[in-house]
Design a protein around this nucleic acid. Sequence first.
DNA 1: ATTGTTGCAAAGGGTTTGCACGTAA
DNA 2: TTACGTGCAAACCCTTTGCAACAAT
Lengths: 136, 136
Amino acid sequence: MKPNRIRMTRQRKAILKALKETDSHPTADQVYLMVRHQIPNVSLGTVYRNLEILCEEGAIQKLEMGRTQMRFDGRMDLHHHIRCVKCGCIGDIIIEPINLNDTMLASRTNFEITGYQLDFSGICPECKKKSPGMVN
Amino acid sequence: MKPNRIRMTRQRKAILKALKETDSHPTADQVYLMVRHQIPNVSLGTVYRNLEILCEEGAIQKLEMGRTQMRFDGRMDLHHHIRCVKCGCIGDIIIEPINLNDTMLASRTNFEITGYQLDFSGICPECKKKSPGMVN
DNA sequence: ATTGTTGCAAAGGGTTTGCACGTAA
DNA sequence: TTACGTGCAAACCCTTTGCAACAAT
C-alpha cells in the first residue's frame, strides 16, 4: 500500500471537473481545450499525465475503442459505449455483463478468461436526421 | 463495379500465403519478417499496403484490439479473439453472434445499432504454466 | 504499352517523456 | 522544506505517403 501522494493541483482539479460535467466522452485535446478556458497556459502534456493518473486512481476511465484517439469518461458505473460511424461521437449503452465463468464460453478457448471489451457501432440521432434512410 | 484490377505480385502472394499458413495473428512487422525469408528486400511499406488491400478484398482481416499494434488474421470465418494480458499473444474464440435487433438492446440507446466488437482478455496457456496461481 | 506496384525514406499524428522550474502539503 | 506536478519541446512509435523506378497484364 503506497500512501496516497496525489496532490490536488489546480490543473488536476479542473481536468476532473471538466470530465464530471460532460457526457460527451471527450478526447485528450478536447479536455485540453475545456481546461484552457480556466487555465489558459495549461499544457497538453499535463492533461495527458493527469488523465492517466486519474484513471489509475479510479476517478475516471479511458476508452480505447479500436485504434482511434483515446477518449475519457467521468462516469464510473458499469456501461458500454456505441460509436457513430459517421461523426465519431460516442454514446452510452447499459447491458447485462457477460458471465465469464460460463462453461460454454470457457470451453471455447484454452485461455483463462478474465475480462472482455464490448463496444457497439451505429448511427447517432443527429446523423440519422441529416441523412434519413441512407445506409452510407 | 470497378473491374478487379488487383495484380498478384510476388510480394502480395507471399504476404497472403504467410497469413494463411499461421494462426498466430501477427503484427505487420512480424508479417514483414516472415516475408523477408522469401523476398529479402521487400519493404515494410509494401507489407502495410498489401495488408490493407487484402483486407479490402476480403481475403484477410485486420484486428484492432484496443490501441495496440494492428494484427492480421488469415481466418475469415466469424470468430472472436482473446488477448493474453501477460504476453500479448492472441487466440480465437467462437461464440454466438449478438442479435442487434434485440428490442431490449435497441431500447437502451438512441443510436441505430449496426455492429459491435467483442474482444476478450485473459491468460494464455503458456503464461499460466509459467506463473501458476499468480494473479499478476 | 499501360498503369498498378514496389522500395525507399520522409512525413504524420497521437501520446509520452526529459528537464528545470514551480507549488501543494 | 520536500518531492510531486507543471510547461515546454523533443522524442516515440506505428502507420501512411510521395516519388521515381519496376513489372504484371
